[in-house]
Amino acid sequence: MKKTLIIGASTNPSRYAYIAAHRLKGYGHPIVPLGLRAGEVAGEKILTEKVALDDIDTVTLYVGPRNQPEYYDYILSLKPKRVIFNPGTENDELENLLREEGIQPLEACTLVMLSIGQY
């Protein structure tokens, strides 16, 4: 199972980050939700601070490119195997930084990847 950090986590059921949190847990993947507002999603407390985390396999992004720079150093420090850029989050600058550190950037959709068994 792939421990996944969800950046842009939300308590709003209409948000894709919310749906992804529930689907990831449903497929047995441990999640760590990180968002702007405290709350709970899929039975997990939403972190509002960039805390040190261990064993993050995947980071899945639900924040647009304009809001991503504040997460660059944090994502790199976690040394995930891959970062998924969900539709609307694509960012060449961050993708290049990831490649330089040996981290795989993927322009994909977490929900589709789960549904077709490619997560």
Rank of each mutant, 00 (worst) to 15 (best):
K2P: 02
K2E: 08
K2N: 13
K2S: 11
K3R: 13
L5E: 02
L5G: 01
I7Q: 07
I7K: 13
I7E: 00
A9F: 11
A9L: 07
R15L: 03
Y16W: 07
Y16K: 02
A17T: 05
Y18D: 04
Y18V: 01
A20P: 04
A20R: 01
G26V: 08
G26D: 02
G28K: 02
P30Q: 00
P30L: 03
P30K: 05
L36E: 13
A38E: 15
E40Q: 15
A42H: 13
I46K: 01
T48K: 05
E49C: 09
K50D: 01
V51P: 12
A52K: 15
L53F: 07
D57I: 05
D57C: 12
T58N: 12
T58D: 09
L61K: 10
G64Q: 07
P65W: 15
P69F: 06
P69Q: 05
E70Y: 04
Y71T: 06
Y72M: 02
Y74P: 00
I75R: 06
I75A: 05
S77Y: 02
L78K: 00
L78C: 02
P80F: 01
K81Y: 02
K81G: 00
I84V: 14
F85E: 15
N86Q: 13
T89P: 03
T89D: 15
E90I: 10
D92V: 10
E93C: 12
L94M: 13
N96L: 14
N96E: 15
L98T: 01
R99T: 07
E100V: 04
E100D: 15
E101S: 02
E101H: 05
G102R: 01
G102W: 01
L106Q: 10
E107S: 14
E107W: 07
C109E: 08
T110V: 13
T110Y: 03
T110R: 08
M113I: 03
I116A: 02
G117P: 09
Q118K: 12
Q118V: 08
Y119H: 12
